[in-house]
């Protein structure tokens, strides 16, 4: 008993200090920086100021925000459309086969996402795989401009983030009680009705978790926009990166990232409320 307690303390201490050191402390530093004064000679000046937050309300920030919101949202919807049928299909196999299929889904993601972004560049290029295939079979007679476009950015985001949608969806679909579906069938519900009234509501927490896990990181993936979008279709991450690296206006960069965090927190809150709502309704029905 005592030994177990000791290990628990050690485990908690390690996890706690890890989170503290690499998540809490950096975020507090960013928060502090966002309230300092800009100093072109050395990133920031130790003087309280809210100037950086005034800058956040600059139309430029909101334009980039809306555009990256739109691109991330599209990427999220596409991920959901691909991942939902896929996860549902995955659940139809025996648990042994499922394990293998899930494993195969994850394997490509062992390669660094930056390397994969470069690979996409070669595939989408004017003389890349897609264009040369389409030219060969005669669908087009002039190469399409796929690279350096909004399409390429969304394509890259979907590809990089797809497993973050599949995993939570799979987790919630796997738990689905098959008896409910049989019961519904016995009571005369057709396939569409079973999907709409049983599968979707019960997997809602998974859908929401997956959407958040895709949408929020997508807003910050600056290298996807740099490499595939030709640095023209900016994500919020690009703006933050530029302020930190090029302009060296750290308070402004910090204020933007804090604003993004606040926004994310707001969405997590909505998620929490929605999940609660779903749970309550579940209890009610039973």
């Amino acid at each position: 008993m005592k030994v177990k307690g000791f290990f628990a303390v050690i485990a908690i201490a390690i996890v706690g200090s890890w989170l503290g050191l690499f998540i809490a402390v950096p975020n507090v530093l960013v928060l502090i920086t966002s309230f300092l004064e800009n100093d072109p000679q050395g990133f920031f000046h130790l003087q309280f100021s809210t100037a950086a937050y005034h800058q956040v309300f600059d139309p430029l920030f909101w334009r980039v925000f809306l555009h990256s919101f739109e691109m991330s949202f599209k990427a999220m919807i596409i991920c959901l459309t691909i991942a939902f049928p896929f996860s549902y299909w995955l659940c139809q196999f025996s648990s042994k086969v499922r394990g293998w299929l899930l494993f195969l889904t994850i394997v490509p993601f062992w390669t660094n996402s930056l390397v994969r972004a470069y690979a996409i560049k070669f595939i989408l290029g004017k003389k890349g795989l897609v264009n040369s295939t389409l030219l060969f079979i005669g669908v087009i007679d002039k190469p399409l401009k796929l690279l350096y476009s909004e399409f390429a950015v969304i394509f890259g985001l979907v590809y990089v983030l797809l497993p973050f949608m599949i995993l939570p969806l799979y987790a919630s679909l796997e738990k689905l009680d098959k008896n409910l579906l049989s019961a519904a069938r016995d009571l005369g519900a057709n396939g569409l009705q079973r999907m709409w009234y049983i599968v979707i509501p019960l997997s809602m927490p998974g859908i929401l978790a997956g959407c958040l896990a895709v949408f929020l990181p997508a807003m910050g993936m600056f290298y996807i926009s740099d490499l595939l979008g030709g640095a023209k279709n900016l994500l919020l991450g690009n703006l933050i990166k530029t302020e930190f690296l090029s302009t060296q206006n750290w308070p402004y960069g910090a204020a933007m990232s804090i604003s993004l965090i606040v926004l994310m927190a707001g969405m997590l809150f909505i998620y929490y409320k929605a999940a609660q709502h779903v749970q309550k309704r579940g209890e009610f029905d039973v």
Partner: peptide, 15 residues
Amino acid sequence: AFNSDAPRMPYLAGD
């Protein structure tokens, strides 16, 4: 595009 790769690559790739 505003290129952030090695500047010769997009020319060599035919983009």
